[in-house]
């Protein structure tokens, strides 16, 4: 009697929180080996071999990881700098509201906005024309759909940086960093040491899990690279969806191979990052 309700709760947890993801993974796994699927005839390694040999997946993976890494480094670095420099100002009423505003902009809008600004007929191209820096739209440099993913990175940074500013401001308050800093100063630390030995380590430690989660979020992000990305290499989600949604039915299975590989690689990385430190709790 006493245990019945917890049981139902646990069953629901498994049903909603675990089962769908397990099913999705198993389905993708079976599809990738040709066990299920419209034209598939039975177990085969051919799709896996095709994916591993073509190298497109790994190119895409490295490309995505690089973009995610650069964006995260810039965002977290920028957010740390802004937090430490402008903490007091950002607590004022007007600015604190402004600081929250970027949270109201979804990835689709960010992608669209950056495209509007940076494309060859976009806002900056018009300004350049007005100033006589360019004479035709084609003179304007490739800032979107470009190899270096400038547009994607810029979009990611505008999405992630504001979030981390807010996060760090909160850690500052919750962990009473001001008091700790004063304490450190009274123990003889100079301002530089206070930042390096107290503020940065605590902020980063508290944000560790969210940094990893955001990295994964960017790695798998879809709508921004869909608007701002180039043909090849593409970011992972775009690549996987393009293959799964294809009319070439063989490619569908290869898309699932990519989905499986992606899931395994990310899971392994996450486990590698978090498990050794498990002794001191997860959060």
């Amino acid at each position: 009697m006493k245990n019945r309700i917890p049981h139902i709760g646990l069953v629901l947890f498994v049903l909603i929180g675990i089962l769908p993801f397990a099913l999705a993974f198993i389905y993708a796994l079976l599809y990738s080996f040709g066990v299920v699927g419209v034209v598939n005839t039975g177990f085969t390694f051919k799709f896996w071999l095709a994916v591993l040999q073509s190298g497109e997946f790994f190119k895409s993976l490295i490309y995505s990881a690089l973009i995610a890494f650069v964006s995260m480094a810039a965002s977290v670095g920028g957010a740390l700098w802004i937090t430490i420099q402008f903490r007091q100002n950002l607590e004022k009423k007007f600015l604190s509201f402004i600081a929250y505003l970027p949270l109201a902009i979804p990835g689709v809008v960010t992608g669209f906005f950056i495209f509007q600004l940076l494309s060859k007929s976009g806002f900056f191209a018009r300004i350049s024309y007005a100033f006589g820096w360019i004479r035709e739209a084609t003179d304007f440099p490739d800032l979107v759909n470009d190899t270096f993913a400038l547009g994607i990175n810029l979009a990611f940074i505008t999405m992630v940086l504001p979030f981390f500013v807010l996060l760090f401001l909160n850690v500052f308050k919750n962990e009473r960093l001001d008091e700790l800093s004063i304490l450190a100063q009274s123990l003889g630390a100079n301002p530089r040491q206070v930042v390096q030995r107290i503020q940065l380590p605590i902020l980063l430690k508290k944000a560790r899990i969210l940094i990893v989660l955001y990295f994964i979020f960017l790695l798998g992000s879809y709508e921004v690279p869909l608007i701002l990305g180039q043909e090849s290499p593409q970011m992972l989600s775009v690549l996987i969806i393009r293959e799964i949604k294809q009319y070439d039915l063989d490619k569908i299975s290869e898309g699932y191979v990519a989905a499986v590989l992606y899931t395994i690689i990310v899971s392994a990385t996450v486990l590698f990052l978090f498990l050794p430190k498990r002794k001191n709790a997860l959060i």
């Binding site: 947890f13 929180g17 675990i18 769908p20 993801f21 099913l23 999705a24 993974f25 389905y27 993708a28 299920v36 989660l213 994964i216 979020f217 790695l219 798998g220 992000s221 879809y222 992972l236 989600s237 996987i240 969806i241 799964i244 949604k245 898309g255 699932y256 989905a259 992606y262 899931t263 990310v266 899971s267 996450v270």
Partner: peptide
């Protein structure tokens, strides 16, 4: 286990689940 769903991008998750 609760963190695991974060690993799969929602769009890929949807593609894998659409059969169901």
């Amino acid at each position: 286990l609760a963190y695991f769903p974060y690993i799969l991008a929602p769009v890929v998750f949807a593609a894998c689940l659409s059969f169901f």
